[in-house]
């Protein structure tokens, strides 16, 4: 009966029962075969990537060491001045802090909610397919449209305050996007609202790999819900957790659209992120070199944080 909880789609995606030992042998044989694969197969793709991504990126990166205004024909080499300036600039350090807060907030809250939703819809309830579609639906809306929608809903006389008033919680009415103390968290909330369903789908895919037989055995042995989750489901979900954390932390670090549409970094500088500040400096302040220096620092942030996270989760998976 427990197997019936898995939907037909899940069954199709899950590895066929009985294929275990044979598959294991096949997988073990593969590495020696893979080593013999012609290395030049990767050359066209690598060259293509180099020409459309690496080369333009390196070309652009050199502007970080100049004072180019984005328009003039001339610019001067200024060494690492732009980077020194960045860490002396309160707007930039504030934006770095906001970016880290958003990334941390989005990563933690989105994945917790995504996981709970996945566990919730990975059951036998009749409406599970409808629920999955509904919960995933916000993820397919363009972030700009989401931003405008929530800007409207969070207005002082918008639907959110209207709803609070209606249910007798008028005292909780807030100036959501106009209050510097909460505007940043409203943006985090909107991002989580939009992408929790996306995390859910990835967790759902991971849940399909959890062996039902082990779950059944643990239930018979008297394991409670939490112990089953912690000792059986969680280790199996490690790849899904890795990819979800990675995607949400990268998405949080480079967040631009929602912030730009909802607050443009305001009120004051309360919601400026590195991405909005890069845009402002490069395209609004005629300070292209400084903008590129910020972009390089952001790239470094994303690379270091996601790399560290990948390693940490890899170790954790190995340990479990």
């Amino acid at each position: 009966m427990v197997r019936n909880a898995v939907t037909p789609a899940v069954e199709a995606a899950a590895p066929a029962e009985g294929a275990g030992p044979g598959r294991t042998r096949q997988v073990r044989r593969r590495p020696s075969h893979a080593r013999r694969a012609p290395w030049f197969f990767v050359v066209p793709a690598a060259l293509f990537y180099a020409f459309i991504v690496l080369w333009p990126s390196l070309q652009g990166a050199r502007y970080a060491f100049t004072n180019w205004d984005g328009l003039s024909r001339a610019s001067e080499f200024v060494g690492v001045d732009q980077f020194v300036r960045l860490f002396d600039d309160p707007a930039a350090t504030g934006a770095i802090w906001h970016t880290l807060l958003i990334a941390a907030g989005v990563t933690i809250i989105q994945n917790l909610i995504g996981l709970l939703l996945a566990l919730g819809v990975h059951t036998r309830i009749k409406s599970r397919n409808v629920l999955r579609v509904l919960l995933f639906a916000p993820a397919i809306i363009t972030p700009v449209a989401t931003g405008y929608l929530w800007q409207y809903l969070l207005a002082p006389d918008g639907a959110v305050n209207g709803l609070l008033e209606l249910v007798g919680l008028g005292a909780w009415r807030q100036n959501w996007l106009g209050d510097p103390a909460i505007a940043l968290w409203c943006i985090v909330g909107v991002v989580v609202w939009q992408f929790a369903g996306y995390s859910m789908v990835i967790f759902l895919a991971g849940l399909q790999g959890v062996p039902e037989a082990v779950l059944e055995a643990s239930t018979i042995d008297g394991a409670g819900r939490f112990r089953r989750f912690w000792h059986i489901i969680r280790p199996e979900l490690a790849p899904a957790i890795t990819i979800n954390l990675m995607l949400s932390i990268i998405g949080g670090l480079k967040l631009f659209d929602q912030v730009w549409v909802m607050t443009q970094g305001g009120p004051g500088n309360a919601t400026d992120t590195m991405s909005t500040l890069i845009y402002k400096n490069a395209f609004q302040f005629n300070d292209f070199g400084y903008g590129v220096a910020m972009a390089l620092v952001l790239t470094l942030f994303v690379a270091v944080l996601s790399g560290a996270q990948y390693k940490a989760l890899g170790r954790q998976k190995g340990a479990s």
Binding site: P38, F40, F41, V43, P44, L47, F48, A50, F51, I52, W55
Partner: peptide, 21 residues
Amino acid sequence: FAKRVLVLGAILSLGAAGACS
């Protein structure tokens, strides 16, 4: 064969990148 593929790949990539820019 490997060299032929390498050259072909390089030409295709250069052509595509050139067309883009």
